[in-house]
């Protein structure tokens, strides 16, 4: 079994000193111009911030559902093929899908424990990602699995019965719903 993490390196960050001058030859002659080729590069900090107005478009009712403690999915009206992650058009028939309510319970299909992550999620590590199966749905749903010990990861988690829980204060993100073991009882 894997041993515990032993990180021996300090993480780098972009904090630094503001610099207003750099060394440069006082006199420019043939020799000093040629010596410029031997200079080390100037590397500077360049921040970039941007805010987007992100529309969920035709998938919007799904997020409204989470805000009302309802897990929705999309279904092809003829074939009944059901997607737990919203999709306005069925991949196989091209038909516009309809909304259906998904069960609040499912099963873990696959999972991982993230001990590192993208910068945005680093403060939340270790966290558990899981793909959930639902009775009557043909595909899976990506979510956070909460309430399992991230240091005791086990393949036995696959097949675990889980139930949906919802944030009381919706963030209108897919993490407004998350899953816990079905044995966890009521909230």
């Amino acid at each position: 079994m894997p041993k515990k993490n032993t990180n021996t390196k300090r993480e780098e960050n972009l904090e630094g000193t503001i610099l207003f001058n750099v060394p440069f030859p006082k006199k420019l002659d043939k020799q000093s111009l040629a010596a410029l080729k031997e200079m080390t590069p100037i590397v500077k900090r360049q921040p970039y911030h941007v805010e987007y107005l992100h529309s969920y478009g035709q998938d919007s009712p799904w997020f409204a559902g989470l805000a009302n403690r309802v897990l929705l999915g999309n279904r092809d009206p003829k074939t009944g093929y059901t997607y737990p992650t919203p999709r306005g058009s069925d991949m196989y028939t091209g038909a516009e899908t309809e909304w259906v309510q998904l069960p609040n319970e499912g099963t873990v299909h696959a999972f991982t424990v993230c001990h590192f992550g993208s910068e945005e999620f680093l403060p939340e590590t270790p966290f558990v990602l899981a793909l959930i199966e639902f009775e009557g749905a043909n595909t899976l749903f990506l979510t956070r699995l909460v309430g399992v010990d991230p240091h005791e990861a086990s393949l036995d988690w696959i097949g675990m019965k889980v139930q949906a829980r919802y944030l009381r204060n919706s963030k209108f993100k897919p993490t407004d719903v998350y899953f816990v073991s079905a044995d966890a009882g009521d909230e």
Partner: peptide, 22 residues
């Protein structure tokens, strides 16, 4: 998918690790 995948904890090593457990 920045609507449904990334916000859950977007991390490619995490995505691949789920494939591994399966």
């Amino acid at each position: 998918d920045v609507s449904f995948d990334y916000p859950v904890g977007g991390f490619y090593s995490g995505y691949y690790a789920m494939m591994v457990t399966r």
